[in-house]
């Protein structure tokens, strides 16, 4: 029983450290990538997994808090992609260009937007 407790606590520390590393890598990607869409990719993915992992670590360290931690994890998992989707769409509609390295851009999309207006 005591061994199980020790494993739980150290797994909690492990998830905390991994989570904070990903929370650091996401903004690093935002700083390094060349255009809005690539920055959005790095920002969304790394911060989502980092947040989930760190919160899960806190939940392991404090088993009494697990209910609210689960709510926070579900909330971040559902809302983070939605906000990145909204930013990407608004960036495309306000005609932010893709970076020079890009290989393909479906121009019919522009066409659809013109028809909609």
């Amino acid at each position: 029983m005591i061994i199980l407790n020790v494993i739980r606590v150290y797994a909690g520390y492990f998830f905390l450290i991994i989570g904070s590393l990903f929370l650091f890598l996401g903004p690093l990607g935002i700083l390094r990538f060349p255009d809005v869409y690539n920055r959005l990719q790095a920002g969304t993915k790394s911060t989502t997994l980092g947040a989930i992992s760190a919160l899960f670590g806190i939940g392991l360290l404090e088993p009494g808090w697990l209910g609210k931690i689960v709510i926070l994890i579900l909330f971040i998992l559902l809302t983070n992609p939605v906000s990145s989707h909204a930013i990407g769409r608004s960036a495309y509609r306000s005609k932010v260009p893709l970076c020079g390295k890009s290989v393909v851009d479906k121009c019919e999309e522009e066409h659809i937007y013109k028809e909609a207006k």
Binding site: G29, F33, A42, K45, D105
Partner: peptide
């Protein structure tokens, strides 16, 4: 995957929008 692309000094990316 993203962490590899962020840390790699040359950034192996080839972005584009597909349908």
């Amino acid at each position: 995957d993203v962490a590899y692309r962020v840390i790699h000094p040359k950034m192996p990316i080839k972005p584009g929008i597909v349908e």
